[in-house]
Nucleic acid binder design. Structure first.
Lengths: 177, 177
DNA sequence: TTCAGATGTTGCCGTCGTCAACATACCGTA
DNA sequence: TACGGTATGTTGACGACGGCAACATCTGAA
């Protein structure tokens, strides 16, 4: 994780991980089938702390509109704070998930936090009715896209700090009752 | 491009490109500084046809709400039709753009299509007032996120065909006057 | 005490991106 | 027409990588 954070996923080498752990390069293959499996484990762990961050934002925000908006901020903040890790989590997800069911589980749990939040707000009349999962997909896609563009430096000229409140506002207009 | 389309970016090899072009592996280095530069060129070309697809959807849709929604559909359709190419365009954009100004230009032009469309709709009172570029960023992020999640197979259980109309509807609610 | 499984190590293979040195093709100028 | 520079292509090699196979060690239960 330290290597990934510092120099990106592409710089991560089985050999390098070996020396970091003071272990021979091929010893890692006793614990992971191959490099993809190792990255899948890294991604799964990322989703675990990611989900905690989302849950915390939602709950300490009061499980209402403030909590919902705090989730959006927390989402993008996580991605910006751990860009490389975030990329491992979402890059080539399909191939990695195929060889690590734990990854699918963790990713699903993180997504369920958002679905649950929207369902709760639907029940209390804050959010428009309809398929909560589909609505969550829309919200997820929006913050995910924002985070990705920010990470990739494609928000040239528009600093994310100024853009994020606008995005959160637009999302609310899109989902409110 | 054929190799990328068939087997993904990671399967693309300088040597393979060489044999495909019936040329020795290192001949490519007379035209591209390194592999990253070659991928940057591929990405730039992708943005070129991508922009054409967006412009076409917008214009043949009548430069109004139907055209706007057609752009959204065209965006996701492009990503789904050329997933690997799309990933090259948006993956690790920052590093690639640094060594190929053409890529930045093409990507900027594609984005400007959306900005221009929103500005026109603001002028005709269809879309809420405000910074058109910022609004475009929100829309871009949403469709980009949707496309990425669809490509990565993270829309398990929710086929994109059913989700896309909902996403387009939500976007409209978020930007309409 | 023994022995099977888990874990770690060394040596090796094929592949990759890339450089250096060398060869050839093209084209404007003397 | 001859020449020379430039663009282009080729061969050979290097270091680094992912990953296998064979061998060594360590641990815990019978």
């Amino acid at each position: 994780m330290a290597t990934i954070r510092a120099h990106g996923v592409d710089a991560l080498t089985m050999r390098d991980v070996g020396v970091r752990l003071r272990v021979s390069r091929t010893a890692l293959y006793r614990h992971f089938a191959d490099k993809t499996a190792l990255l899948a484990a890294v991604a799964a762990d990322g989703f675990r702390v990611f989900r905690l961050a989302l849950t915390d934002a939602w709950e300490s925000g009061g499980r209402g509109r403030p909590g919902f908006e705090a989730m959006g901020v927390a989402y993008v903040r996580f991605a910006l704070a751990n860009p490389s890790h975030y990329r491992v989590m979402f890059g080539g997800f399909e191939t990695k998930a195929a060889c690590d069911p734990e990854l699918s589980t963790q990713a699903g749990s993180a997504f369920q936090v958002l679905v649950q939040a929207l369902a709760e707000m639907q029940a209390s009349g804050l959010v428009r009715a309809g398929d909560a999962a589909a609505l969550a997909m829309f919200v997820w896609a929006t913050v995910h896209g924002t985070a990705m563009l920010a990470i990739d430096g494609q928000l040239a000229g528009a600093p994310i700090e100024g853009l994020l409140p606008l995005v959160v506002d637009r999302i609310w207009d899109a989902v409110r009752a």
